[in-house]
Simulated assay, not measured.
Amino acid sequence: MSVQYRNNVHIAGNGPVTIVFSHGFGCDQTMWRFVAPAYAQRYRTILFDLVGSGGSDLSAYDRKKYGSLHGYADDLLEILDAYAPGPVVFVGHSVSAMIGLLASIKAPKRFAAQVMVGPSPSFINDGDYVGGFNREDIGILLQTMEDNFAAWSEKVAPMIMGAPNRPELGTELIESFCRNDPSIAKHFARVTFLADHRADLPKSTVPALILQCSDDLIVPREVGAYMQRCMPNSILAVIDNVGHCPHLSAPSASSRVIDEFLAQTLG
């Protein structure tokens, strides 16, 4: 099976640097449509779907391999080996930010920089660590998803999206969730919401931008501050936006912050 077919890889643009965009849970590469095209005018861009999502090869979904985020990180490195001639800038939303982090630890020379949009190393509160949810909350969330995935999507997706002035984006996220194979989505959700990669944060030395929204129901502000303290070569930027998907609800503000980071990092 080719990497291109497995991950539905699409390449655009032509430039001295390659930027790779990776989507979050329940989404696909179309979620970058307000951001990626502008970068394709200056850079080479790669978009792809995580296995089990979007236009990826669903038959390639292996529950053992993807029982942790390391399986996705290995896929990412294979995509870079196949399509990226030099160090890349990796832009990952939500869970993909952690996938990029793990890949950057395994192969730091493959990365010039990483942009982490709404990242969280752990969603579960633990002592002084504020992840946003108690363990019981996560258990209820996952059980509700198991009981009725469609109903869960209709309730939760608009809350994740935020963007109170653009309800159509919440509807789009509902539809995106519901296009996924429910059995795969439920498994991926458990891997996503039960993961704990706090101990991995100091291991990543690749320059990193942590991009957060001022009001994010899924990832509270404390998470970004924690990550910035733990990651040795990182900066934190908070944009004024409600929701967990600023690349959709605040693309201009997101791009400005990313451009400033790239100018400082790439020169």
Rank of each mutant, 00 (worst) to 15 (best):
V9D: 03
I210V: 07
A97N: 07
V95E: 06
G24R: 00
S120K: 06
P202Q: 11
D216A: 02
E146T: 14
M31W: 04
N233R: 08
I184D: 08
G67I: 11
P182A: 11
A250H: 14
D128A: 15
D200W: 07
F25W: 14
F111V: 09
I218S: 08
H70D: 14
D137M: 04
S122Y: 11
V95P: 02
F193C: 06
S68Q: 13
V95D: 03
A112S: 15
G55Y: 12
A107W: 00
A36T: 09
Y226T: 12
G26H: 05
I79L: 10
Q29N: 07
P158M: 01
A103G: 12
L76C: 05
E175D: 12
M31E: 05
W32S: 01
D49P: 08
D75M: 08
S249C: 06
L169P: 08
M1R: 09
I79N: 08
S96F: 10
A253N: 06
I140N: 01
A163D: 10
R221C: 00
F177C: 01
E260I: 01
S255E: 03
V20Y: 14
S122C: 15
I160C: 00
I239F: 04
P251T: 07
C178F: 01
I19V: 15
N8L: 05
E172D: 08
L58V: 09
M159K: 07
G55P: 03
R33W: 06
L102F: 09
C27Q: 11
A237C: 05
S249G: 12
A38M: 05
T30Q: 09
M159E: 11
G92W: 03
P119C: 06
Q143E: 10
P119F: 03
S183W: 07
A189S: 14
M159P: 02
T45F: 06
N7A: 09
M31Q: 05
V9K: 15
D181Q: 10
C27L: 11
P207I: 06
L58T: 10
T30V: 02
G127F: 15
L50H: 11
V191N: 11
H247C: 04
S252M: 03
R135I: 13
A157C: 04
D62Q: 12
V95I: 13
L201H: 10
K65A: 13
V156M: 04
P108C: 09
G162A: 06
I124H: 13
H93N: 13
T205I: 10
L262A: 01
I138S: 01
G15S: 14
S94L: 03
A163C: 10
L47K: 01
H187G: 09
D240C: 03
R256E: 13
D240P: 04
L47E: 13
F177D: 07
L69G: 12
M227Q: 12
V191S: 13
L47Q: 10
A84V: 13
S255D: 03
D81H: 09
G243C: 07
K186D: 10
M227C: 02
G243K: 07
R42Y: 13
L248N: 06
Y39S: 04
N14C: 14
A151S: 11
D128S: 15
A250I: 01
E146Y: 08
P119Y: 07
D62H: 12
D200E: 14
